[in-house]
Nucleic acid binder design. Structure first.
Length: 592
DNA sequence: GGGCTGTACTG
DNA sequence: CAGTACA
DNA sequence: GCCC
């Protein structure tokens, strides 16, 4: 045939589809090449030039886009070939061409061939892709910034400013305000578009009212970056703005942008700890973990409307309306479905709702995903505090029958004081270290199963090697109806209408009760920062204790449970002391 | 320019 | 090993 | 995205 050497890219094709297509291509005398580097025509199920470039690059072929007429290399939709077969003749190739380019280098990569057929990309590849996209955007930003920088240098900047530029951090931040911050603000208020009011008056106003660093809370002045070293209450005077940061973080979660998740979590935790209503974006850059980006978002929010209740951030509103993100979030709410699976289901398999998942994919789901789908609605329903208390009381009753003297405590968001909960976290221990057998949790779960309180065990730690006595179980709970037994014995078609609840059980030996309580009380960023605090001191911290980097338990940290009943919090206090941290009540760990 | 919490199960 | 789930 |  007159075709150029051709290669079929396996991207997004199942192994079976890939093989079938190869056979069909061969049958139609398409000149297939065994390696991509010798091909000049690529067939692929890819929709964007960027992606084509990426796929070729992962195969060592570096390309630059090139106009169609002169390009020696092109990537064409597989559909072109299938349409040709259908039509019985060679159709014009142009409409199906996704990417045309010239090859600037071919890198022979050692190691495993990338021609493994994959159903989906690995996380690593996606990270790399995101990285590239981000770099591109950043380069544009830098360019724009450079222009402004030069303009400014012509004018106001002098030697004194220049040295301050590089000085100590909060100083640095203050001097930066007026340069990078204003750039960001100008950029954003420009992009804010029609709905935005002119930004200059607000900006001038901000300058006048800006809170100085001397009026800031003590932890800001000391530049305390870790949330475990400050008080973070559940209520914030800036809750409306913080909600927008949550939206951005959710987006970063769905795109597996670990770094973005960290950055926004840190910023959220800081603002959540900040006790005053924010007045200006200049105030924000003085806060640890917040810099020009967060400040720009705040400015965008502040200038979006005069009525605080009606303020928005245009970029965030776009995220909320993005149907892909809305769909991904919906799938992600299924228990057992993380970002990777959500993306695979939404983009590759095209499932648009939970019913699609059931209809087209049920058999392929993991066991816990099936449970997650089955109780999708129930698991979204928030639980009241009294429900968690009931669950605690029932489990405590069973545990005490198995082992008298057992003590329990509700941790998680319950302990932090939330009024509505997504699950119940119950810690279980016993003041006598010799009493808790490794099989205790298993026997407790079995006992609750017999009683009919547990529908499913999502996960149960069965391994109990010597030295490890902390065990966890994740359960699906349904409160029994009082006449359930009667219904069962009389074989009446009774239906239990109680909502299924997620319950996590943690059995800890008394020596590690304080650590375990700290860990399961959270919140997320608080625990993360706690580990950072320990890492900075060369300690490794697990739920079972604090260890030197290489093995030995750190002396002076005693989180032991000494007494029955009220011993939990005292054990936790001793851990704070041992770590050199100030005690924080659970209600002050609401890092969001 | 490199780093970002740490652990354990499931498939 | 990758993905997910805890807080 | 922010920090060192």
């Amino acid at each position: 045939s007159h075709l150029s050497p051709t290669f079929l890219l396996p991207t997004r094709l199942t192994p079976a589809a890939h093989a079938a297509l190869l056979a069909q291509l061969a049958a139609h005398n398409v000149p297939l090449t065994p390696t991509p580097s010798t091909a000049s025509l690529f067939l692929a199920d890819i929709n964007t030039p960027t992606r084509c470039r990426f796929e070729l690059r992962t195969r060592g072929i570096m390309t630059e886009p090139e106009p169609l007429l002169t390009a020696p290399l092109r990537v064409v939709k597989v559909a072109w070939f299938t349409e040709c077969v259908k039509a019985g003749r060679v159709l014009p190739i142009e409409p199906w061409t996704v990417y045309t380019a010239t090859v600037c280098a071919v890198v022979v990569t050692p190691g495993p061939s990338p021609e493994r057929v994959r159903v989906k990309e690995t996380v690593r590849e996606k990270e790399r892709k995101r990285e590239r996209e981000r770099e591109k955007v950043q380069a544009e930003e830098e360019q724009r910034r450079g222009v402004m920088e030069r303009a400014r240098r012509d004018g106001v900047r002098n030697a004194e400013e220049d040295s301050r530029w590089r000085s100590e951090r909060s100083e640095y931040k203050r001097s930066v305000y007026g340069t990078r911050v204003t750039d960001e603000i100008i950029k954003l208020s420009k992009s804010a578009g029609r709905g935005a009011r002119p930004s200059t008056p607000e900006y001038e106003e901000e300058r006048i009212k800006a809170r100085g660093i001397d009026e800031m809370p003590e932890w800001v002045r000391r530049n305390v970056k870790l949330s475990c070293c400050r008080s973070t209450p559940a209520d914030s005077p800036n809750a409306d703005f913080i909600a927008h940061l949550h939206t951005i973080r959710d987006h970063r979660t769905l795109t597996s942008d670990e770094v973005g998740i960290r950055a926004y979590s840190t910023a959220i935790a800081t603002l959540q700890a900040y006790p005053y209503p924010l007045i200006s974006s200049s105030e924000i850059v003085l806060l640890p973990g917040c810099n020009v980006k967060i400040a720009a978002l705040f400015h965008s929010w502040l200038s979006s409307h005069t009525d605080p209740k009606l303020r928005t951030v245009p970029d965030v509103e776009k995220l909320k309306l993005n149907e892909n993100l809305v769909g991904l979030a919906m799938l992600h709410r299924i228990w057992g479905v993380g970002p990777e699976t959500a993306r695979e289901w939404w983009f590759v398999r095209g499932w648009r709702n939970v019913d699609d998942v059931v209809e087209y994919g049920w058999k392929g789901l993991t066991r816990v995903q099936q449970i997650g789908v089955k109780y999708y609605d129930d698991f979204q329903k928030p639980m009241m505090r009294w429900e968690a208390e009931r669950i605690r009381d029932i489990i405590t009753h069973h545990a005490t029958l198995l082992l008298p003297g057992t003590t329990t405590i509700l941790a998680g968001s319950y302990r932090r004081g939330s009024t509505s909960l997504t699950d119940a976290d119950l810690l279980i221990s016993h003041p006598d270290p010799t009493q808790l057998a490794p099989s205790f949790l298993e026997r407790l779960v079995a006992s609750l199963e017999t009683e009919g309180c547990i529908n499913y065990t999502l996960r149960l730690d069965r391994t109990a090697p010597p030295g490890r006595t902390l065990q966890t179980a994740m359960l699906v709970w349904q409160e029994q109806q009082y006449d359930d037994v009667r219904l069962r014995t009389l074989r009446l078609p009774g239906r239990n209408a109680n909502v299924r609840r997620r319950v996590d059980l943690v059995v800890t030996r008394p020596e590690t009760a304080g650590m375990a309580l700290m860990r399961w009380t959270g919140g997320g960023t608080w625990v993360r920062d706690l580990k950072t605090w320990c890492a900075e001191r060369g300690w490794r911290v697990g739920a079972e204790g604090v260890w030197e980097r290489d093995g030995e338990r750190v002396g002076g940290i005693d989180g032991g449970l000494r007494r029955e009943g009220e011993g939990w919090e005292e054990a936790e206090r001793r851990v704070f002391v041992g770590m050199g941290l100030e005690w924080r009540a659970p209600g002050e760990r609401c890092t969001g």
